[in-house]
Design a protein around this nucleic acid. Sequence first.
DNA 1: GGAACACTTCGTCGCCCGACGAACTGTGCC
DNA 2: GGCACAGTTCGTCGGGCGACGAAGTGTTCC
Lengths: 257, 257
Amino acid sequence: MPTPPAPSSGQPDVARAAALLADPSRARMLKALSDGRALTGAVLAAEAGVGAPTASAHLARLLDAGLVTARSSGRNRFYRLAGPEVGHALEALALIAPPLPITSLRDSGTTNALRRSRTCYDHLAGRLGVALMGTLLDRGLLTGHDGTHRPATAVRDRASGYGHDHHYRLTPSGRTALHRLGIDLDALPPRRPLVRYCVDWSEQQHHLAGAAGAALTSRLLDLGWIRHGVSPRVVHLTPSGADGLADWIGLRPSMDP
Amino acid sequence: MPTPPAPSSGQPDVARAAALLADPSRARMLKALSDGRALTGAVLAAEAGVGAPTASAHLARLLDAGLVTARSSGRNRFYRLAGPEVGHALEALALIAPPLPITSLRDSGTTNALRRSRTCYDHLAGRLGVALMGTLLDRGLLTGHDGTHRPATAVRDRASGYGHDHHYRLTPSGRTALHRLGIDLDALPPRRPLVRYCVDWSEQQHHLAGAAGAALTSRLLDLGWIRHGVSPRVVHLTPSGADGLADWIGLRPSMDP
DNA sequence: GGAACACTTCGTCGCCCGACGAACTGTGCC
DNA sequence: GGCACAGTTCGTCGGGCGACGAAGTGTTCC
């Protein structure tokens, strides 16, 4: 059993710092403090959506770790961010965090996330990946489940990674549609599952994996319908790709669940 | 029961991003990749000090979240950071992480941490706080335990926050020493415990809290032996403070445990 | 074709930690 | 002095997750 090496002495422990921000309640409190105000424990409890005892425990940890400062004034205790470094860390984490789904028309102007997606190893993930999966299901090209990850009823599925709870499979018309796009399903590696799915970490929906998912991603690249962004993991839908997907299976980029 | 509000739609989920970095094994892997190299799963498993199955699971999560990219080459799979944003996030977290204890003479040139400490609400934490506590114990001014937090044998004590497992108390000579410094123990708030301790999150040692800890910190400020830094939570030991502590209880800033 | 290597998946275990209600402490108001 | 408010501490519960060994898959070498 390999033993974890101690972090280099004198070097900062990134994991410990990250752990402080990894809790949604603490993250909300720190975010509320990011505009420079001093806020009381009761206000921060409300911001975080937790009770006073829980807020008190979280603030004690943030205080002890030096991320916030506290000043008592009568029965109130006011908290502030300890310095600009905390705000910078929140911003840096926000840059690598996947944006949450657009849930209202009001948000659609701020992030047109469907046009900016991700590749999961060798198949499409992110907004485009789950939209594609959703349309394949809606059009009867894929069957087996409705594409949604439901933590409350999940048996083996986790919030990310390969899924196991559902058995998706291509319908005959699904196979025909892929063939029309130029994908020869019979030529795919026989020992790899044709249809698998991942629970998309950022979307909490399923996206297509397996040999079919890889072949589809490869084909969309070949057709110029998607292309890699500055970061190789990010793919962009091209204008011709938007038209192509609309013609192929009726998927339109403006569709938001 | 207050219900946690959903994060603002369309806004990045900082806690989810932080959670990915909050695991020591994943943090080590990402740190190893920070110099731009592409490394295999086996190498990253070794860097992290975990077995291949554990490394594989961690890398799958990092891959799915878009923090790394993967390229297979024969039986090897090479991983890279997905973009500079990940490295920036690691750096930003390192800035707010408390440095780990100096464990060798070789490190002492890189961080003279004893001169830069923290205030825990109203008492000294950080390196100065635990060094002070250690010296009070060594000199027989405080008694009850040896000042060390031992996770393996802790009953109620956690890795940070107020401690409960040990009952420290000032010895008669300890009370005299505080009196010599100008602290009137009989004038302290009677309902607050005189001597409490915190488990110092960054040092994993105990530091003095309670009314005595607060009074001591206040007195050191009054004497000009410590002063607040740019960040109000950080305190610096002043030159006169270094001399004063040496004269008072024989604590010398160059002493490293 | 068989063996070895790199990596993945499965099943299991135990620990950590975030949540709460109840009770308590400290402060301010009447 | 009594009451109310703000905040803290205690005790408990349940879920999440990181670890492993065993078994399996894919690739390369002989």
